[in-house]
Design a protein around this nucleic acid. Sequence first.
DNA 1: CAGACGACATTTTTT
DNA 2: ATGTCGTCTG
Length: 688
Amino acid sequence: MPTKTFLLDADDASEMPSTKSGVNLEKYQSALNAAQFEAVTTTEGALLVVAGAGTGKTKTLTYRVGHLIESGVAAQNILLLTFTRRAAQEMLVRAASFADTRCAHILGGTFHAYAHKLLREYASKINLAENFVVLDQIDAEDTIEIVRTALGFNKKEKRFPKKNTLQRIISTATNKQIPIEEVIENSYPQFFPLTDDILKVADAYRDYKRTNSLLDYDDLLTHLKTMLETQSDVRHRIASQLRYVMVDEYQDTNLVQADLVALLSSVHGNVMAVGDDAQSIYSFRGANFRNILDFPKRFPNTKIIKLEENYRSTERILELTNSVIRQAKEKFSKNLYTKIKPGGELPAIVAAPDERYQSRFIAQRILELREKGIALNQIAVLMRNSRDSFDLELELKKRNLPFVKYGGQKIVEAAHIKDFVSYLKVLYNPRDILAWNRILRLLDGIGPKTAQDLADWIKTAPNPYHFATANVSPKYLDALKKLGTLLANLSQNLSPLIAVSETLLKYYQPILREKYYEDFSKREKDLENFLGIVANYTSLATLLADLALEPIDLSAMETKATLKDESPLTLSTIHSAKGLEWHTVFLINVLDGTIPSRYAVGETESIDEELRLLYVALTRAKNLLYISYPIICKGAEDYFGNPSRFLQAMPESLYEKLLLVDSKQVQPQLSAPPRQLQPPEQDHDLPF
DNA sequence: CAGACGACATTTTTT
DNA sequence: ATGTCGTCTG
């Protein structure tokens, strides 16, 4: 007998929180200012909160969750989309502590993670294998390489774009929702004559993903969007459940994500976006700060609330940051002010003779601050590029200052971790062609071609672990059999996961030593730490999904593992510092060409984005702010670096200059001597 | 066809 | 400093 589904409309009348009856609003009123309070209590309809840096954006979201839960809304009816999982968890823990433990159970996470969850659930609705594989960026590049080679473009043209360029072109087109031709024309004019071939690669890549059930990051969003657009019953089911949808960092969403927000909130229409157009720093990922301006157009009758009172920074810091954002060509109407932190120390601009001096200055200043009782975890060093801190890291290690670094290479992107994870992937999904490809090439005598041939066999083999039935040369049959038997045995019993991993590590270790003989011990330590992460998981599926969707910073893992007592100092890229704050912030390498990045120079739009990036960095500081750059930079040849053009445009009254003088080499002062800083006592061990 | 070696270019930021 | 490409050898 055929069964039909009858969809009931959301029953608002009966589910409605008994308006504010059970909620003690005084608690909220006393903790929030008027604008924040309004944002928290405006629960119905569309709401846009334009929140300047440090104006209590997170607090507002946190309290809003608390308020909804205390009003009787069930946790599974609230969705909070954030930029990182870290951000979501922090908010939920906070909400749980002041309001109700149920706060911890609301739906949420990143767009990608939430999309992933829904797609697993509804995969069958869009002809997607339930055990589809999520490709991280490296996987995506490797896949593109496979189709590129299959198309023969690897030898044909000398200057054919490389796999990561191809990946970027394709991804940019998706994220900005523009044709690939346009991306090439705008950003990669040198490849314009090859447009047709690039399009062929893009098509082949899409087909390859579809036949092999592979989804890259962009697919997670676009597949969900397509599903919600075309399957109205699914959309209705999902959106009915989501009575309240909240989106953090809306200025960094792209068009696809904006569409998703609309689709997810299409039944109830209770959607809140929080963001700051002045802090939009992800245009390279398709984000457009104009999205936030378009929000009211997309959702008619949007109520707009502005948060402009800053609680984070001192008046001196705010004056400087306000002047920075005023340099933007596209102006923003924002006027941050402070009532509670008047005055303060002038921010300092530090011209260090070279990078070594810069590092010594920072290390020494941090030690002084610690003496004064500022905890290390209240201090951060920020930089434009992850590698800008290498010299400083050496200095910090030398002085035994513990630090955690965020940004830069992700643990799963390191080749040896990727190798190891591939074994796990093959256990999870024996048809994971990409993972097979990787681990097969680790065997002696198997190169790209043989690996590809074997992968083709695996695709249809009745038992992919049973290589005896494959038609392979005896040269490597033994090695294959050994691998196959190991995997077959492990797949019989996947728990405990940590035991499986240890067995695999034993198998992989000799390969690792052979392949990376130059630095295998460092890599072995990485793997050891990685097993520590694995130990927290019981489900292989969850582990693999988390690795793809919430990549862990390699060095963060490394340092966390070695930390003992003192809570560490933070080193972070500006991008990874979003939403965070510290008592003291150092921003290093503020050079023209670094920030603004030399790749951004030329276009007003990208220069503005670099300026916003600087703005984000400076607005992280609560009390002390140091901006530094080396005068002499090292490269193939040493050269004179120019301070960032943004610094040169700052009014001189808003900062003080700091000149570093080595205590051993007292130099004659040229003009009025700025404040001097004494170098460390133990400088005798420095190479001067 | 695998693997080693040398030339060459190439360097953001992240889910 | 690193990865990628082409070329050569076995």
